[in-house]
């Protein structure tokens, strides 16, 4: 009797053990609270400077060798485009987009450039089950489309609605998004194409920590000009690209309700229970089994003997 019991217990534990090996324990906990690489690069975007010329869109198109746009880049009618009640967003053919927002208090509209914000702790990265994404020490969030399975979880996870998908590709549909011009420029220490092309220097390229100081200095130096908030300093754990604005950020279409902590923090509670279930459940349920069947046959393989119990 005891022999069978022990063997069964071992069998059950082994099943649990194999499951443990698959558990996402190591990396989940190692994720800790990562605040970005110390010398990571970033971009400060000053919305007060943008005039909506769309030169950055053209520069991005050229640098990333994207397909021909539907309309010329000096066609400003795109600002009136509305899809499903929404302004334009990044697509698989346009990694950056400039939108126009009408403000409540002033006649002058506000223009906002949208692209990947290159989060310190990116939700896309942590949601990817093939680990396609990478946050480089230079600060870019890049991805390896050769391993992309196409689950599109990163699109669900991105709090800024950035990654897009080449839905119309038959054989090789993949995720597409801004990579901070990593391959062609950032790797060599050069600013991305959009930053360099901007006539108004809406964007300033530099080390994130230096730029953060400058952002606060600009707010301080120009009393009354800016809203006293750097969008992206704290949002979702901090972003590589961050914004200062003369108008409240919600009027410029920003999601001002985003958590201050990285998206992955929401998931950590759940990930923490995984190893618990994996280690405790086998013993617990085997124990239940032994208790529940105490004194009875430990029956299986001989379940015909239980046929008559059906009555109840």
């Amino acid at each position: 009797m005891s022999k069978i019991t022990r063997r069964k217990f071992l069998a059950a534990s082994a099943a649990g053990g194999t499951a443990i090996m698959m558990a996402p324990t190591k990396k989940a906990f190692a994720a800790g609270s990562f605040e970005g690489f110390p010398d990571g690069m970033g971009v400060l975007v000053d919305l007060t400077r943008c005039v909506g010329c769309r030169t950055c869109e053209a520069a991005c198109n050229k640098e990333q060798q994207l397909p021909e746009p539907a309309k010329p880049f000096d066609d400003y009618s795109v600002f009136d485009e509305i899809h499903h009640g929404q302004k334009r967003r990044t697509t698989d053919k346009a990694y950056t987009i400039v939108n126009r927002y009408e403000l409540k208090d002033t006649e002058e509209p506000l223009y906002r450039k949208i692209q990947c914000n290159h989060c310190n702790e990116p939700a896309c990265l942590t949601s990817c089950f093939v680990n396609a994404y990478k946050k480089t020490p230079e600060g870019a969030v890049i991805y390896d489309s050769h391993v992309c399975v196409g689950c599109r979880n990163c699109m669900i996870a991105c709090p800024f609605h950035i990654p897009a998908y080449t839905y119309h590709s038959v054989l090789n549909p993949v995720i597409k998004k801004c990579i901070f011009c990593y391959d062609t420029r950032l790797k060599e220490g050069k600013p991305p194409a959009c930053v360099e092309s901007c006539p108004q220097q809406v964007m300033t390229f530099g080390k994130r920590k230096d730029l953060m100081k400058i952002a606060h200095e600009r707010i301080k130096k120009n009393p009354g000009k800016y809203v006293d908030h750097v969008y992206g300093e704290k949002e979702v754990g901090g972003t590589g690209w961050f914004y200062i604005s003369n108008a409240p950020f919600e009027e410029a279409g920003f999601d001002v309700h985003l958590p201050k902590k990285p998206i992955i923090d929401n998931v950590k509670d759940f990930l923490a229970i995984v190893p618990v279930v994996l280690t405790v459940w086998p013993a617990l349920f085997t124990g239940f089994h032994l208790l529940a069947t105490k004194g009875k046959s430990h029956g299986h393989g001989d379940d015909h003997s239980h046929d008559e119990q059906g009555g109840h």
Binding site: A23, P24, A28, A31, F129, V130, N131, I264
Partner: peptide
């Protein structure tokens, strides 16, 4: 081939 063990979807998969 390529493991993303911190992802919930990895666990689901």
């Amino acid at each position: 081939y390529s493991f993303g063990p911190a992802a919930v979807l990895f666990l689901v998969g």
